[in-house]
């Protein structure tokens, strides 16, 4: 995973509420067996509409997406995070996110920043003309107009993003505690192991 410390650049002033992951990436793009190239399918339905922010040259290649409440609801498809990453988005700012999406985003080096609606409204305004600066170490979002918004982030997620850490590698480093959990479970709940394979050919 790439390290993420600060991100500065233009932001898509998107703002739509309750954007589900079917909107972020429609199902027919899910047939890939690779993680890359999904940017082409990102927001496909919305991009058919004239005047959408994703095809506005002013925002091309923006590393920041400003969204509305409950961004990423619906399907668990990590392809939504892959599609955003493929578009070059490193930070999504919204008043709230679905639980599954924010986890998927984080695991792909995308920072999800939760800010109150009025702060998001202000950033939507700024984004139309000017760049936005996100500093993960300082947990702040700033604008060229002296706006400064502090955001909270889970310390473990922050550490992983700053260091570009491989979460699986970290967990495998604790194999001994998993071993002892399994040993305990085998004593207390031996029935956990499926008793028979399904009758398949």
């Amino acid at each position: 995973m790439d390290k993420l410390t600060t991100v500065e650049g233009r932001a898509y002033p998107f703002g739509m509420k309750n954007v589900d992951t079917d909107i972020v990436i429609p199902a027919h793009w899910l047939k890939t067996i690779s993680r890359s190239g999904l940017g082409q399918g990102a927001f496909e339905v919305l991009r058919k509409q004239p005047g959408n922010v994703f095809d506005d040259p002013a925002y091309a290649g923006s590393p920041i997406l400003i969204a509305g409440d409950n961004f990423g609801c619906g399907s668990s498809r990590e392809h939504a995070a892959w599609a955003l990453a493929d578009l070059g988005i490193k930070v999504v700012i919204a008043p709230s996110f679905s639980d599954i999406f924010s986890g998927n985003a984080f695991k792909n080096g995308i920072l999800t920043v939760v800010l109150p609606q009025d702060a998001v409204d202000r950033l939507m305004e700024v984004a139309k003309t000017d760049p936005i600066h996100v500093d993960l170490e300082a947990q702040s979002v700033t604008t060229p107009f002296q706006d400064r918004f502090h955001f909270e982030i889970d310390p473990f997620r922050k550490q992983c993003l700053l260091g570009g850490l491989d979460e699986i590698g970290l967990t495998l480093g604790e194999a001994d505690v998993i071993d002892s959990y399994e040993a305990r479970q085998a004593q207390e709940r031996p029935w956990i192991v499926p008793s028979a394979a399904p009758a398949v050919a």
């Binding site: 668990s76 599954i100 998927n104 695991k107 979460e167 699986i168 967990t171 194999a175």
Partner: peptide, 22 residues
């Protein structure tokens, strides 16, 4: 509960997930 593909990989490799209590 549903998980993303990175978590699928994490479960396959470790049989665990890192979670915060809901």
């Amino acid at each position: 509960f549903g998980i993303g593909t990175s978590e699928v990989e994490h479960v396959l490799a470790t049989q665990t997930l890192l979670l915060k209590q809901s």
